[in-house]
């Protein structure tokens, strides 16, 4: 592994409780751009509403639909973006989506080593750990060890495929459907699908006894 790590030895600094000078800079840049009519006065607010409308619940619905509907699953694996658009999910950032299917013999894991590429249209914004060095640096070189840190053990007879997203394409993992979920509704299935399962760091949750 490369010895010339010249990035800071410090962990990612925690964001302060208010933005201070940076918040002032953000406000000033935004207002200047509006004054110059380069962006519209309501555009930022509108985009915040767009961001707020995206969360792992959308991805979970996509996964549950794929578990129940083989035709949808096929279309999803062929063209992830088009299949999500069928469900009304828009790709406001004009990215493409490849859906990676976990099977009994393949486990997929998603990372962006260069920055923080993430399927925001279907999952919302990524968690902090996805954006900082330990995960980004190590997911590509020691994925099994990283998965163990999430409590996920992948046996050696299962192939690990790490997708490093860099450009146009975003990735969503289609986890294995948990055992004991025969007859579950789409809603009940979606409740088992977490954000982390769609990044590929954990499996979908098993059904609880009461479900």
């Amino acid at each position: 592994m490369s010895a010339h790590d010249h990035s800071s030895p410090h962990p990612e600094p925690a964001a302060p409780q208010h933005g201070g000078d940076y918040e002032i800079m953000e406000t000033a840049v935004r207002e200047l751009l509006v004054e110059k009519k380069l962006i519209g006065p309501g555009e930022i607010r509108r985009q915040i509403e767009v961001l707020d409308s995206r969360s792992p619940a959308l991805g979970a619905k996509v996964v549950a639909r794929a578990w129940l509907d083989a035709g949808f699953r096929g279309r999803l694996l062929e063209n992830g973006r088009r299949a999500c658009e069928e469900l009304g999910i828009s790709f406001y950032d004009d990215t493409q989506l490849i859906v990676l299917e976990n099977t009994e013999s393949v486990h997929n894991l998603v990372v962006c080593t260069l920055c923080s590429c993430y399927p925001r249209p279907v999952l919302g914004l990524p968690p902090d750990w996805y954006k900082v060095k330990p995960y980004r640096a190590r997911a590509v070189s020691e994925p099994r060890k990283v998965l163990e840190e999430f409590g996920t053990h992948i046996p050696d007879n299962v192939e690990i495929r790490v997708s490093d997203s860099t450009a146009l394409v975003r990735y969503l993992v289609l986890p294995l459907r948990p055992e004991g979920t025969e007859g579950f509704s789409e809603e009940d299935l979606a409740a088992l699908v977490t954000r982390d399962a769609m990044i590929g760091v954990v499996a979908a949750n098993p059904p609880t006894r009461s479900a």
């Binding site: 080593t113 968690p127 640096a137």
Partner: peptide, 30 residues
């Protein structure tokens, strides 16, 4: 460009974005 460099164990950190951080994200999109 840090893929493959040595680094600490993953800490599962997250935080709710502050209002200015969310505005900054929206600004990037716009």
């Amino acid at each position: 460009d840090i893929g493959g460099l040595q680094a600490d164990a993953v800490q599962q950190t997250d935080h709710v974005l502050l209002p200015w951080e969310k505005r900054c994200h929206a600004l990037a999109d716009v």
